[in-house]
Write a protein that binds this DNA or RNA. Structure first.
Lengths: 228, 228
DNA sequence: CGTTCTGTTGAATACCTTCAATTCGCGTGG
DNA sequence: CCACGCGAATTGAAGGTATTCAACAGAACG
């Protein structure tokens, strides 16, 4: 299990922990595999621990009574999920499903809480993770309530092409899933993509989007400009 | 300052802490007063600590570029606020403003973090607080994205009249503020109230709302029924 | 008792969704 | 290697919910 301990020591949540703690964590860890589309846990289900994604991609989402879905998070390898239920309430507050073949490490609640109370460093890391999530949700609420869909999409695009002014953005999820993440439906997103293309702001080839006019996109993201 | 220590020991965040810790907390605490409408901190402002509300009522909110507001939270006495910035990033993720004459206890970041690393109990309490907030936001996102305004309002009403089947709900904030909390505007809320009254579901006298037909409201809250 | 903020009501509009019909893309199997 | 089939994506037309703008009524406060 050297490989597992190795991975664990590189997870942000566990960064900076002494080797001894990493070993303890490895001992209580259980690895689960999931196929594309498989449910990991469901909203309201009793929670007995938390997960850290090892491989693949997982979506955390809510479902309406009519079956419409709102994605809260796309989890990437190294990120924890299902952590809320460990510290408050005893049930998961949303659904989790593998978007592709995935592996996740499961940490049973009791043992994990034990480690946290013994290691202030781990506690601080966990507090940082939860705070980061809260900040993210704050922005999500802001987007859903105060911005229109083109604004949200423009922000999404720009945040994905932030680093080293690369113009190419490769969507890591299907367009329909992106729509759900942006709080809309595939049709609406498709129309917005179409408009942006016809205005010369971007080009789209499957999941590959090229930003042609960054300034205009920033104008839309900030609400200063609108799509025609 | 016996009174302050007394209050602090009754705050959920500090529940179960030994007297010694409470004393330390009292020593690093600073009390601030705010008048109605006064800003406590603003979005993006550098954060040097967290607050616990002592008296009054505080709204945590986001503003759009056009000035529309979305309330994230109404803080009641005993609740902490501004805590996210202590553990992640260094700036407040939203605005805070006193809705009425208020007093808040301020805990400087460094000293507070020091106490947390010394007391696992305090750390666990803080984790529980953050998790609770996350759960709350999960529901807020769900409401904004997957439910219509009448549904949100019906849920709000019912959660306010939950205990001991009391039919009277007294709004603790102005209707305009409630609209902002529900992710809409005063006009829309007013129309919904009007419809519910004319359908005989409720009566409204200022801030006093009486539930006449709980079943119908539950139908609306769950999305099974609609308003005419 | 007047001024100001809060709440209400109406008409027009905007944005997004719904529904339905195609088209595209891709993996599977012949 | 090509054809088939199925889910994903696109496009059009119609409809619905909420917002905007504007005017007015009412409550709160000094």
């Amino acid at each position: 299990m050297a490989k597992l301990a190795d991975f664990i020591s590189n997870v942000t949540l566990f960064k900076g922990l002494p080797k001894e703690q990493i070993d303890k964590l490895s001992k209580i860890a259980v690895v689960h595999g999931y196929r594309r589309g498989e449910e990991i846990f469901s909203d309201g289900e009793r929670a007995n621990g938390l997960y850290v994604l090892f491989l693949g991609r997982v979506k955390i989402f809510k479902l309406s009574s009519e079956g419409k879905e709102q994605i809260l998070h796309i989890i990437e390898p190294g990120e924890p999920f299902g952590e809320v239920a460990v510290f408050s309430g005893k049930t998961f507050p949303a659904h989790a499903e593998a978007l592709e073949e995935s592996k996740a490490i499961f940490f049973p609640r009791g043992a994990f809480v034990g480690l946290i109370t013994q290691d202030p460093y781990l506690a601080m890391n966990m507090l940082a993770v939860l705070s980061g999530r809260l900040k993210y949700f704050t922005r999500l609420v802001e987007d859903l309530s105060l911005k229109e869909v083109p604004q949200r999409f423009a922000s999404y695009l720009l945040s994905g092409s932030d680093l080293k002014d690369k113009r190419q953005v490769h969507l890591n999820i299907a367009k329909g899933q992106l729509a759900s993440l942006l709080g809309t439906i595939p049709e609406t997103l498709s129309r917005i993509l179409g408009k942006m293309v016809s205005e010369g702001l971007i080009t789209v080839q499957g999941r590959k989007i090229t930003v042609l006019n960054r300034d205009a996109l920033e104008g839309i993201a900030s609400g200063r400009k609108a799509l025609i």
